[in-house]
């Protein structure tokens, strides 16, 4: 019995587990460690039109049960991603979700138009939530009207479904979700990192050269769970959940909150085999919890009893 296969717009996944954007590069490094065919999908590193070097170093700082990063969207640029990275990834039978970034609307549109033509790109993840770039990014992710407009523009040109990646750095996440839904989004991915800072007690200065960075890892999980719980109840869009996932239990919690698939980011750095081990452990955990299929878990935290699928326990 396959308890893990799920279907989302554009995505027919053998399991709902995928590495999160920026934490897995374009897959080459982790392919030295395990067969990427095990993965449900792969969310590749953010792509912009031009090559970007990103921010000065140090770019990462550890915090309690988490880390800050300020990579600054370093990537080889659209042409290289299309001509080298995506063809390399096509040797695997794994759908790719391309993370699309930019500084201005036109840049997002161009990346979306071109990258969505690649045969193994089955969906886009519109990154309107990167906290680490000076222009664009964050404004698109915090002003509902701007996010809606950008989503619409990208939808017009994309040949594959568009998942909008929401920023947690807002007072009202529901409003943002509704705005991008109105803009035509096919799904949501959430959450991106939370803006934070760590100061070195010896030097008295922020550790990150960029001063601020995005917080990820187990420390942010409760925030991700709460936001998915709120958003999943008021939109019809499927949600790819992320933020601190490190175990099969965490995956179930995200599904209970309202996710239909999940991405694992920071945990790859701690245990590079975390994705395949979660995939291996999930069926047994579902069995123990009394579910025939993982999709029965979606939204269980808020669905009325009557709405719940049959459940043994």
């Amino acid at each position: 019995m396959n308890r893990l296969n799920v279907e989302l717009p554009g995505l027919k996944l053998k399991n709902p587990i995928m590495p999160a954007s920026g934490c897995f590069g374009f897959g080459r490094e982790y392919s030295q460690l395990y067969d990427l065919n095990l993965l449900g999908a792969i969310m590749i590193k953010a792509t912009t039109v031009e090559t970007r070097f990103g921010n000065p170093t140090p770019r990462v700082a550890e915090t309690h049960a988490g880390m800050l990063n300020a990579i600054g969207l370093q990537n080889p640029g659209l042409d290289k991603v299309i001509s080298e990275e995506l063809p390399w990834l096509s040797q695997y039978n794994v759908p790719i979700i391309a993370n699309v970034a930019g500084s201005v609307e036109e840049e997002y549109v161009e990346v979306a138009r071109e990258i969505s033509k690649s045969p193994n790109v089955h969906a886009l993840e519109l990154n309107i939530s990167c906290p680490n770039v000076k222009t664009g990014g964050i404004a698109f992710g915090t002003i509902p009207e701007v996010a809606k407009q950008l989503t619409r523009k990208v939808k017009e040109v994309s040949e594959v479904p568009v998942y909008v990646k929401l920023s947690p750095n807002v007072t009202n996440i529901v409003e943002m979700a509704k705005a991008v839904e109105a803009g035509g989004a096919d799904g949501l991915s959430m959450i991106n990192t939370l803006v934070g800072m760590k100061i070195d007690i010896k030097t008295g200065k922020p550790i990150l050269a960029n001063r601020t960075g995005g917080l990820s890892g187990p420390a942010i999980k409760p925030i991700a769970i709460r936001m998915i719980y709120e958003v999943s109840q008021v939109t019809n869009l499927p949600i790819i959940g992320m933020g601190g996932i490190q175990s099969a239990e965490d995956v179930i919690e995200f599904f209970y909150a309202g996710a239909s698939a999940v991405a694992v980011g920071t945990a790859n750095f701690v245990d590079p085999f975390v994705c395949p081990s979660i995939i291996e452990q999930l069926p047994e955990l579902l069995e123990k919890l009394g579910f025939d299929h993982i999709s029965e878990c979606t939204g269980r935290s808020w669905k009325q009893n009557g709405q719940l699928a049959y459940h043994r326990s």
Partner: peptide, 17 residues
């Protein structure tokens, strides 16, 4: 030396020009 995330080349934490 540089502060690292993944340690294997995937996260772009440890680059230099």
């Amino acid at each position: 030396e540089e502060r690292m995330g993944c340690g294997i080349g995937a996260c772009f934490a440890c680059v230099c020009k």
